[in-house]
């Protein structure tokens, strides 16, 4: 009865990459672009200095989203708590509302049911926003990669700036990861999205394949849905 993973991939759907395209755009990462830069076209001296200042600001102060998923969240709390005290680096104010957070630490395995919700929480955060993937599960699904319900890494759903490996990573590792993120922001770098096949779509907009037709009676046209395809992810 064991579910051996299939070697061949069937019924593969082409990954939809709307978010990636929107996100990457042309030129420097969109997250750092200002209206002023658009107006000026190039980057005059004053804007460069201003950018540097803004990067310093963003790199030194961040509110974290209070977001716990699985095992890693326990180590994440330890990182905030007495011994490791992430707040030393200006990154230790947890906000429960995504509207007020800058950084989302994704601490754990993402499963199909949670995927759309995580995407929604990410969308609710105001730009510029950053994501730290904590633990093996957010890299590849980790020890649960072969599970029928597991999304193989956070990057399938949202763009991730820093991956902290480990199962779970030690608090020291997470502190290092956050520091690396701050360093990158201070240098105005951020990562492009590499893989991203899972998108939230309107059910009515989906291609009318077998599955969609079967579910047509259950799901409203306007409902948002996310395709989950275990075999299709790398």
């Amino acid at each position: 009865m064991s579910q051996d993973p299939k070697q061949s991939i069937q019924e593969s759907a082409t990954p939809s990459t709307d978010t990636r395209d929107a996100r990457m755009g042309a030129g420097v990462d969109d997250r750092f672009n200002s209206k002023l830069r658009e107006a000026f076209g190039a980057s005059p001296f004053i804007l460069t200095k201003f950018d540097e200042f803004m990067n310093w600001v963003r790199g030194n102060s961040m509110f974290m989203l209070q977001f716990g998923i699985a095992c890693c969240s326990i180590e994440m709390i330890h990182t905030y708590a007495i011994k490791h005290d992430l707040d030393r680096f200006g990154a230790g104010v947890p906000r429960a509302s995504p509207r007020q957070a800058d950084v989302m630490i994704v601490p754990g395995t993402i499963v199909s049911k949670f995927g759309p919700r995580m995407k929604r929480v990410y969308d609710q955060m105001p730009e510029p926003k950053f994501v730290v993937g904590m633990g093996s599960c957010t890299i590849s699904g980790g020890p649960f990669q072969e599970g029928y319900n597991v999304v193989k890494g956070a990057e399938e759903i949202i763009p991730v700036d820093i991956h902290v490996p480990g199962c779970p990573p030690r608090p020291e590792a997470l502190v290092y990861g956050v520091l690396k993120l701050q360093e990158r922001i201070r240098h105005g770098e951020s990562s492009p999205v590499v893989v991203k096949p899972y998108e939230l779509e309107r059910f009515g907009d989906l291609e009318k394949d077998e599955l969609v037709q079967k579910l047509a009676s259950e799901i409203d046209e306007d409902d948002l849905v996310m395709r989950y395809n275990w075999a299709d992810s790398p």
Binding site: V57, S61, M62, A81, R88, F89, P126
Partner: peptide, 26 residues
């Protein structure tokens, strides 16, 4: 705990960083 201590004496410049960052958010 200690809290902010990396920016300036006792981390006091976090005031600048925090306020500018909050104002510059979307």
């Amino acid at each position: 705990r200690i809290a902010v201590n990396h920016l300036g004496p006792a981390g006091i410049f976090v005031i600048v960083a925090d306020s500018v960052r909050l104002l510059s958010k979307e």
